[in-house]
Design a binder for these strands. Structure first.
Lengths: 188, 188
DNA sequence: GTCTATACATTGATAGAC
DNA sequence: GTCTATCAATGTATAGAC
């Protein structure tokens, strides 16, 4: 029943990380305090900075745990892959991703993370779209996903927060299809 | 050439308000300090709280100056009215509105302002859409507008920040049209 | 009406005890 | 490895001088 120090440290560190994701999600980077994170993790405030050095570094570590949506995971055309990824983000709330999203407007570090993640996300879409202005189309799609996610989970707009994810996806289908479709298809 | 005290006060107050809008836009509510606002307005920090009482109240006053987009101003069908309103927000940057947007994720007051503004905005759209799920459709449209505006002006995503507003509107046209259209029109 | 000086609270981060 | 005590910095808000 001995718990080696290294293992115990990993446990505590992981507990702090998940607690930090929750606090950053709830309060945003600026309002989130190390003391609050420590309290949520059931440890002392000094220990947090002892482990992670600074608040910035702690946030950076939280960012690293956020998954990057991989479109290739789901089958079908590009527009359906995009909608499938959105559906996943509507049902469950990825704490780390939402923490980044909430902090993006106040923390440069979070802004950089969003830009980086969005860039990779957009490049996936860009490659799947045959249009020559695929880059802009991908950026618009990405912006739409951001608006939908933020409105539902962060701002909690009444209609969007309570709506069935399936209905939201259904209503967005022609929208995304029009953006991801080959613009030449309709002409000749 | 005498400047009555009341008039001088109005001048200084207005100067502080516009300065505050700029600071809140640039830094967000939390990071924005009264000292920075005072410096930008060319007055003392104590004077700001003397006029507005508190930081919250100052922010509330800035919020009140933000215009509510009126769809009825432009002609045509609902989808075109929405796109016209978006076009306006893409070209010029309404400081007060963007200040609210940046602060929405950290300040409850700003969140309330967004909810209230969005509700009025959405009710306009809802009335213009014949569908029975018009409320959800309006909420989605509103979320899309939020995502586009935030990505362009706040996050400054490369593609969206530099793109021509006309092209963005053009790409979004079928998207908004599909959401604002009568779903019964296509059937029978 | 405007500015100076300051009280008060909060927070990030550090040093040392257990 | 963890917690206690503390420092230094920042920021809001107030009281009083000009």
């Amino acid at each position: 029943m001995t718990t080696p120090r290294a293992e115990q440290r990993r446990n505590t560190e992981a507990r702090i990380l998940t607690a930090a994701a929750g606090i950053f999600l709830a309060d945003g980077y600026d309002r989130a305090t190390i003391r609050a994170v420590a309290a949520a993790a059931g440890v002392d405030a000094g220990l947090v900075t002892y482990y992670f050095g600074s608040k910035q570094e702690l946030f950076r570590r939280v960012i690293d745990t956020a998954p990057v949506p991989d479109l290739a995971e789901s089958p079908g055309p590009a527009s359906e892959q995009i909608l499938a990824a959105l559906a996943g983000r509507l049902t469950d709330e990825p704490a780390a991703s939402l923490a980044i999203l909430r902090s993006v407007l106040t923390n440069p570090e979070a802004a950089e993370a969003v830009r980086g993640g969005a860039a990779r996300y957009q490049s996936q879409i860009t490659q799947a779209i045959p249009a020559d202005d695929a880059g802009l189309r991908a950026a618009i799609i990405s912006a739409i996903m951001l608006g939908i996610t933020a409105s539902r989970h962060l701002i909690r707009s009444d209609e969007l927060a309570t709506a069935d994810p399936a209905r939201i996806v259904e209503l967005l289908r022609p929208c995304v299809a029009a953006l991801a479709a080959d613009p030449e298809a309709g002409r000749g």
